[in-house]
Design a protein around this nucleic acid. Structure first.
Length: 848
RNA sequence: GCCCCCUUGGCGGAACUGGUAGACGCAAGCGACUUAAAAUCGCUUUCCCAACUGGGAGUGCCGGUUCAACUCCGGCAGGGGGCACCA
């Protein structure tokens, strides 16, 4: 009688899988392919519970699809470039490369201890030249194909550290290290022309039927296609005209002002002769570039003194410079119609501008107070539009604008090109050279990769590449004159935009083996957090198109056929008397349930469950859980109770509950109720029929659960199955064979979740094979089907009785039996039956 | 500010396309086993009234559609995620 020893069992089977290469994928197979991918991690140094949850879910899919006969690709790698490595270099003096590779080694060991069925032979690290050299080649091909642009854009500038800051490094408008107020600054940067695919990226969302609806919606809103009009306003005393974009051109007669962005040429021109405006623009430049920051700032404007003339009738409208008008969107200029737009209304109130209602609700009057009217209705006070409904008014206005040459129909997008330049060291170098005479020159293919220099220092702010003594000084490839390397590196989203394709042929000398990619792609099931719902997924969709256009892929549009977003892992929070957060291991619970500090015994405040984070200290280290309970317990708990897409609260009690359940399963083979029948000795006839029914119902239900990612339901059914096997009574006929049948089903069904324990039990059951290679069990339909069902009988929708009926009984018979039930008769109480609704095998509703 | 999501017993959740709300688990209570404890096993557990029959209420709140609503529609509240240089 060996006790369930998780650490011994887990090490044993991990070694066996490794030795046998159980999870190596090969394209040559007569089985259908299935590519399951979890978003690869940033190598922060230690895996956290969020990884454990995400990767456990992916592993259940990978292992169950293998059992169902698919040729499965399930790879893992490292999203290894990024800021934390530079921060470690600045704060602790460790080189980003060393820090990153040590972190990778540790996290790989941790993931391997979790027993995930990865094909480790395909492991990649994006910071390795073997990976990023291909990215440099792709960039040059994208450049040649017209998918790359170079233009100016804004960055957060820290004037003290003289460095560019990420949005997350801007806290309350100040640099995180220097504390200096951040300014917006213009830099010339590289862009991927994602807007070239704006229509495709939007329209083809509809094909992604196995993506969550909300993710598609978020992408749709992000791309933000809007159909509107360009409208040209004449300017009093000037020859040029002001071009604005509007989707509410129907409200043009309600215009009471125009406004341009602080970066609009007109604003720049006026600022040259108006110091007040120049100061206003400088003031608006303070603060970061984040949209949330800009949009929550107070709406401010400055009257330029320029007067715009209404295209119809020539009414005079003041032209303001306003901080809420964005140059990147539309034409960087708007007309304001305060009666029908909240922002315009706030602005009008602030600067004493008229509010002219031009749309009235159907059959009603309109009075605009603090709220604009944005609903549907009919046009008023609008000359040739009067009486028209909004859509018709839009058409008529567009026609008129086009007829008099004051505007035309135009579609614009909210989506902007993807800026990929980063003024940082730990990223993929952008392979271009700047020459004084030749301009921007691509690095010749033969000189790739442009490798990051290792001898860099982080003792001063700014980009180490920029101040490296030799690295950036190179001759121009074209004219051989002294030239300068691009010292910006790529946004790390670039690496994660094509890694799914690299996994198809991770050791290929070229970037992507087209045949392998054609076989494996698209990814059948992609698993990861909702935080990547927009950018990462959109950039990957862009890259798939770009790589197809440049010949890397055979016309792949959509990289991820299926997408699933797992929920977060939460934990209770603890605070001591001073309000300082405490780690879960720093607290203890007394008999009476009060929570105290484990050492000092002082009282502790227990807060709500929140996302695990270092700052809140509500973290549990997966490695502690593996050590104390085992990987299988951690895996099981991660799937129990909460549905995979919802948040999950980690609790010590819950983990112990999972551990207890595994102990209980172990005892089924270790201390069986009856001697388990030998291999291939299956039950006969009706012996132990109720247990056998339960077994086959469990097979059917779990098969459905795993297909629909109902992992929590799957765990609940495993409990039911184990409970049913506990009902087998020694000495009754067929007990040993029923136990054999039930255990074999149980072990294969649980293997995707708790693979180590499953292998150990499989071996104990006498198999020489691996459960990892065992086929998924099939339910016997005769044992799954019931011949009778319990049907609810309602009177006026209220449950009054239940009756047991033969399955599939006709409506008339069901109605007769239901009405005969005494409880039903009592509820009807002599009232006339008006109607009886019979839903076969479900419900009979008597309406009186 | 804009966009998206979530809300069911003491707790996590289940309920297939609208058809018996609370599966399964946790916690709690009672009992068995034990010298004792742990472990394990059994029973009870939505709330209120009634007390071996039964009745009423109930899925964040307000309203609607329907024979029937956790499920569909409208409004509101609370909690969370994203917003282009975190990954």
């Amino acid at each position: 009688m060996a006790r369930y020893d998780a650490s011994q069992i887990e090490a044993k089977w991990q070694r066996v899988w490794e030795e046998r290469g159980s999870f190596r994928a090969a394209a040559a197979s007569d089985r259908p392919k299935y590519y399951v991918l979890e978003m690869f991690p940033y190598p922060s140094g230690r895996i956290h519970m969020g990884h454990v949850r995400n990767y456990t879910q992916g592993d259940v899919i990978a292992r169950s699809m293998r059992a169902k006969g698919y040729n499965v690709l399930h790879p893992m790698g490292w999203d290894a470039f990024g800021m934390p490595a530079e921060n470690a270099a600045i704060e602790r003096g460790v080189h980003p490369a060393l820090w990153t590779y040590e972190n990778i080694a540790n996290m790989r060991r941790q993931l391997q201890r979790m027993g995930f069925s990865y094909d480790w032979s395909r492991e990649i690290a994006t910071c390795h030249p073997d990976y990023y050299q291909h990215e440099q080649a792709m960039f040059l091909d994208f450049l040649a194909a017209g998918l790359v642009d170079r233009k100016e854009s804004w960055v957060n500038w820290d004037p003290v550290d003289r460095t560019v800051l990420a949005n997350e490094q801007v806290i309350d408008g100040r640099g995180w290290r220097s504390g200096a107020p951040v300014e917006r600054r213009k830099l010339t940067q590289w862009f991927f022309r994602i807007t070239a695919f704006a229509n495709e990226l939007l329209d083809e969302l509809a094909k992604l039927t196995r993506w969550p609806e909300r993710v598609r919606l978020m992408q749709e809103n992000w791309i933000g296609r809007s159909e509107g009009c360009l409208i040209r306003f004449g300017l009093a005393g000037r020859a040029d005209r002001l071009e604005v974009f509007s989707t509410r051109h129907d409200t043009l007669f309600g215009a009471s002002f125009c406004a341009v962005s602080i970066d609009h040429p007109l604003a720049q021109e006026c600022a040259g002769r108006d110091q007040g405006l120049a100061a206003f623009i400088a003031q608006c430049r303070k603060g970061g570039t984040a949209t949330a920051e800009i949009e929550t700032a107070e709406k401010l404007g400055y009257d330029t003194g320029i007067v715009a003339l209404h295209p119809f009738g020539g009414r005079e409208l003041p032209v303001y410079v306003a901080n809420f008008v964005l140059l990147e969107y539309g034409t960087g200029a708007i007309f304001g119609c305060p009666a029908h737009d909240q922002r315009d209304l706030d602005f009008a109130h602030k600067y004493g501008l008229p509010v002219l209602p031009v749309v009235a609700p159907e059959g009603g009057a309109i009075a605009v107070g603090v709220e604009p009217f944005t609903g549907d209705g009919r046009l008023i006070n609008s000359d040739f539009l009067d009486g028209l409904a909004v859509p018709e008014a839009k058409r008529r206005m567009a026609d008129r604008l086009e007829a008099i040459g004051a505007g035309e129909r135009k579609t614009t997008f909210r989506l902007r090109d993807w800026g990929v330049s980063r003024q940082r060291y730990w990223g993929c170098p952008i392979p271009v050279i700047h020459c004084g005479t030749c301009g921007v020159v691509p690095v010749p293919r033969g000189q790739l990769p442009v490798v990051l220099p290792e001898d860099v220092t982080f003792d001063q702010p700014g980009n180490p590449l920029d101040r490296h003594p030799t690295w950036k000084h190179v001759p121009c490839p074209r004219c051989a004159a002294p030239a300068r390397r691009e010292t910006d590196t790529f946004d790390t989203f670039v690496e994660s935009s094509w890694y799914f394709a690299r996994f198809c042929s991770a050791r290929h000398l070229g970037a992507i083996d087209r045949a392998e990619a054609a076989y494996w792609l698209p990814v059948d099931q992609y698993m990861g957090g909702i935080e990547h719902a927009i950018l990462h997924l959109l950039y990957s969709r862009f890259f798939a198109r770009g790589l197809s256009r440049t010949g890397y892929l055979d016309g792949l549009a959509e990289p991820f056929a299926g997408l699933f977003n797992q929920g977060m892992v939460l934990h209770e929070t603890y605070q001591d008397e001073s309000g300082a957060p405490l780690l879960p291991e720093q607290i203890r619970r007394d008999e009476d349930g009060t929570v105290r500090h484990a050492e000092t015994g002082r009282p502790v405040t227990v807060g709500s469950a929140e996302k695990m984070s270092k700052s809140r200290k509500n973290v549990v280290d997966p490695e502690d859980i593996i050590r104390n309970h085992g990987a299988d317990t951690a895996r099981l708990f991660m799937l129990s109770d909460s549905p995979p897409d919802r948040d999950l609260e980690w609790t010590a009690l819950g983990a112990e509950g999972s551990r207890r359940f595994l102990n209980r399963i172990w005892r089924l083979v270790d201390e069986p109720i009856v001697a388990i029948a030998p291999l291939a000795a299956w039950p006969q006839g009706d012996e132990q029929i109720e247990v056998r029914r339960a077994v086959h119902r469990a097979i059917a239900a779990i098969t459905g659960d795993v297909a629909s990612f109902g992992f929590n339901r799957m765990v609940a059914r495993l409990h039911e199955l184990v409970n049913a096997l506990g009902e087998i009574r020694a000495g009754e006929p067929g007990a040993a064979a029923a136990l054999r049948e039930g255990l074999e089903a149980l072990v294969v069904l649980m293997a995707p979740i708790v693979p180590h324990l499953a292998e150990e039990m499989w071996e104990r059951l006498g198999h020489a094979t691996l459960v990892a290679d065992a086929p998924w069990p099939k339910a016997d339909p005769l044992l799954v089907a019931d011949d009778s069902v319990v049907v609810a009988v309602q009177v006026n929708g209220k449950l009054r009785a239940t009756v047991t009926l033969a399955k599939g009984m006709g409506q008339a018979d069901a109605e007769r039996i239901a009405l005969a039930d005494p409880a039903v008769a009592r509820a009807i109480e002599g009232r006339a039956v008006r109607r009886v609704i019979v839903v076969p095998d479900r419900v009979v509703n008597v309406v009186v």
